[in-house]
Design a protein around this nucleic acid. Sequence first.
DNA 1: AATTCACCCAACCGCTTTGGC
DNA 2: AGCCAAAGCGGTTGGGTGAAT
Length: 281
Amino acid sequence: MGRSPCCEKAHTNKGAWTKEEDDRLIAYIRTHGEGCWRSLPKAAGLLRCGKSCRLRWINYLRPDLKRGNFTEDEDELIIKLHSLLGNKWSLIAGRLPGRTDNEIKNYWNTHIRRKLLNRGIDPATHRPVTDHPTTTNTTTTTVTTTVNNNHNVTSPPPDIISFATTKTTDHVVKNEDMEQDTKLNITSPDQKQERCPDLNLELRIGPPQHHSSNMIPSISYMQQPLMTGGTICFACSLGVQDNKECRCSTNGTSGNNNNNVGFDFFKIKNGALDYRSLEMK
DNA sequence: AATTCACCCAACCGCTTTGGC
DNA sequence: AGCCAAAGCGGTTGGGTGAAT
């Protein structure tokens, strides 16, 4: 027994949307808002399945979409985010206002993949294409997140998602990087930067920690050294500068204290991380 | 001018996740 | 706890378009 179809396919249109269909969908959503995609087609007088309507709206008709070419900054941001998140296009799109996951996915597959390959970087791993697989593990870019602040002595160790290179392997990483640089004849800072994204998240997801009673129940984003010698907060390193979020020393707000938890990338300042909010655009 | 090829992107498909009962 | 419908997501496909021959 197969999966039941999402809609009555016999009476639905497929393929490219017509102007009239677009107009109907826009008019309906303007009046009634988004939601209940399954019943929307009938209510709006469209011979489309709900999924198709949703996709058309989200990827093409939404008024807040930014059309047009990607900027160089957007390119670099996508590359950085992809190195952290992998093919989580919706998460990546969440950091690029006006861009859709589908658009970014297409752009990645048609432009950025080639761009990285031309630079000698494997788009999947963000490592030089000649890298031996076994070396990848020790240098994987990682994020460590602490989610739960309910302290419990008996709780198991946290699951760790780490975007930051762990300290215990730092020396190994550096040695390997130097070896790679030598092998690949990488000498310029720009070339090195490709393999060492200037993102360093400390983000730990896991059960309660008990060893630090005043541990801030959130993420402390390590400030990143700038080429110029200053520091840049995580927000700025992602290119999502915002006066409210930015903790860069460069904008006049110096250093973090215990109450200053840094950029609230995952929206957890007010308590335990709502993991699901990470997933939502 | 006609044909072939490569590229791009909108749309589809099927699986997973979520939420209500 | 389990079931089911709806929504969300990521991979893939197919048609349109422009460049090359």
